[in-house]
Design a protein around this nucleic acid. Structure first.
Length: 264
DNA sequence: ATGGTGGCTTAGCCA
């Protein structure tokens, strides 16, 4: 089974690029973040037409929004709310075989890495704490689960273009990295991409729109992740981060798709 | 130190 995750930054603006991802990679399941559209306006028809008959969409006006698009029927699906908000950041589905798949969009956290003066950063930290506690209390590392999405944190030094220069930049600050590690420990999550790529190797999944030339400056960060619980770790067969998608015409997302293959 | 770009919605928010 091939699973893809992509912060698409508007599914309507980039529908053609989604169809390109489908044509080129044929994922069994595609998880999207930042769909930025209410469910009634989600462009489902061309997606269903290409074999993704089972869809679980959870969107809102303007911001956020997640979706799970699948060639295989779900046994069930659900959504989660965090921090007392209903802002469409977490959808889940039970895949054939009882594998629970979580599609998550963690808040970006604003610019100032201080929860006392930046409500967005406080929200991000609380979101991480609540998810961590939920997995600890409601799930077990023994259960086959997959968690994917834009986690908006680059945990390793090699997940950013400059560890030193980004230590004080939201997405790579020690407090976020620690909380992400706690969340990872909450269900024994294994980083499926780093399962194949050693920490000595730089890996990015996002490059800012603001760079003059994203490919030349290459100031990226690995914000998009795929995690699996231990029962699935030895089922992992491969990974791909589609760097080339950052240059997809006419208008690329600032994030690229991340994929893993699993023998389920 | 600042500004750089992009999407949604329509001047400002969010990333």
């Amino acid at each position: 089974m091939r699973i893809a995750t992509w912060n698409i930054n508007s599914v309507r603006m980039r529908l053609d690029l989604l169809l390109r991802l489908i044509d080129e990679r044929q994922p069994d399941v595609i998880c999207l973040q930042e769909t930025k559209v209410v469910d009634a306006d989600f462009p489902l028809a061309p997606i269903v037409e290409r074999g993704y008959a089972h869809t679980h969409i959870h969107g809102m006006k303007s911001y956020n929004g997640v979706a799970i698009l699948s060639k295989h029927a779900f046994e069930s699906n659900d959504v989660q709310h965090w921090c007392g908000r209903q802002d469409c950041r977490h959808a889940l589905a039970r895949l054939p075989g009882g594998v629970e798949l979580h599609c998550v969009y963690i808040p970006a956290g604003g610019d100032i890495p201080d929860p006392a003066v930046n409500d967005k950063f406080a929200h991000k930290l609380q979101f991480l704490d609540e998810m961590t506690e939920w997995f600890r209390s409601n799930r077990s590392p023994d259960q086959p689960m997959i968690l994917v999405g834009d986690l908006n944190i680059a945990p390793l030094e090699s997940d950013v273009w400059s560890h030193k220069e980004l230590l004080g930049v939201v997405s790579h600050t020690p407090v976020e990295v620690e909380k992400l590690a706690a969340m990872q420990a909450s269900a024994g999550w294994v980083d499926a991409v780093r399962h194949f790529v050693p920490p000595s190797e730089k890996l990015y999944s996002w490059w800012s729109y603001r760079a003059r030339d994203w490919a030349v400056s290459d100031r990226g960060r690995r914000l998009d992740h795929i995690w699996v619980t231990p029962p699935l770790a030895d089922r992992l067969r491969g990974q791909a981060i589609l760097r080339e998608a950052r240059g997809w015409e006419p208008k690329p997302s600032d994030h690229v798709p991340v994929l893993v293959d699993l023998d389920l």
